[in-house]
Design a protein around this nucleic acid. Structure first.
Lengths: 145, 145
DNA sequence: GCGTTACTGTTATGCATGATAACAGAATTA
DNA sequence: TAATTCTGTTATCATGCATAACAGTAACGC
């Protein structure tokens, strides 16, 4: 693969992310979930009762784009809504949602471990730190010019 | 940002990539280009005469999805097609394309440097190696189960 | 040589992700 | 109380990515 873009961190980041996502979605399809759904389930497990807007803010999903996601998950009986306010509603995992969440956890844990094991041991120690550094750096660079 | 997903490499990879892409697209919009277009221009600069299919293979873009990209760039007079075969056609940067390419290069180089500078110095040395490792690892993990 | 196979560019189509604008109802604040 | 902010929602659009199908061309096997 003679790719002159391979020394650009942003490009490599994108290719790595794209490949990682493909693998994850492939595995999650066994649970009829997309990675977005899975991330919401995991978030709700850690922070039950969180608001739809808050969840979107944490996961970096637009308010408007949260609607079909939450609707889909609620239609499947995986999450419950509970009015907390005249305008907001807290989101909770239903019993079925919790059951599925443990399966999600199994799949994701295994996958993330596979991903990490594919990284040469000498680099593994700093791998997460590097990823977080790029995340932060990229976030800071969005607005730049 | 209390995000329980922040210790999953795949998730962090995706967030970093997404943020990095947003910043890049913002900068490229000044040239009326998307990151995909820019990557093709850069590829053609390094490997003039490459085939549309070959380019797609290198950039991991489906043959069918290359069509609108190439058409758009050709319509703007940035690239030329030259029949090399009954079926294939070589792609080249036009004069205008080369001119724009140098601008692209400026933008991207500056951006990638910004990205790198946002990474703490102690990590910077291994940053690219880590990204490549994840790329390779993710690529290998796509088919797994 | 000829038939099978493989490759190229292309069209059409669908799904997923994101972004934006607008709105009504509710809460907060000044 | 009036102005502002926030929430969930609808509608709409652009982009990215995948798949299937097709015609024309090339390469290969015998």
């Amino acid at each position: 693969m003679n790719d002159p873009l391979a020394n650009l961190p942003g490009y490599v980041l994108r290719r790595a992310s794209s490949a990682a996502l493909a693998g994850l979605n492939r595995r999650l399809s066994a649970l009829s979930l997309r990675h977005v759904d899975a991330s919401l389930l995991m978030l709700l497990n850690g922070q039950p009762g969180i608001t739809q807007s808050e969840a979107g803010r944490i996961l970096d999903i637009q308010r408007a784009n949260m609607v079909p996601i939450v609707s889909r998950l609620e239609a499947r009986g995986l999450i419950d809504r509970q009015r907390v306010d005249g305008r907001s509603q807290g989101l909770y995992l239903s019993a079925e949602g919790e059951a599925l969440h443990t399966q999600v956890l199994t799949v994701i844990d295994a996958y993330e471990q596979t991903l990490m094991e594919g990284v040469p041991a000498p680099l593994r120690k700093q791998a997460m730190a590097v990823l977080h550094a790029f995340w932060q750096s990229a976030e800071a660079a969005i607005e730049g010019d």
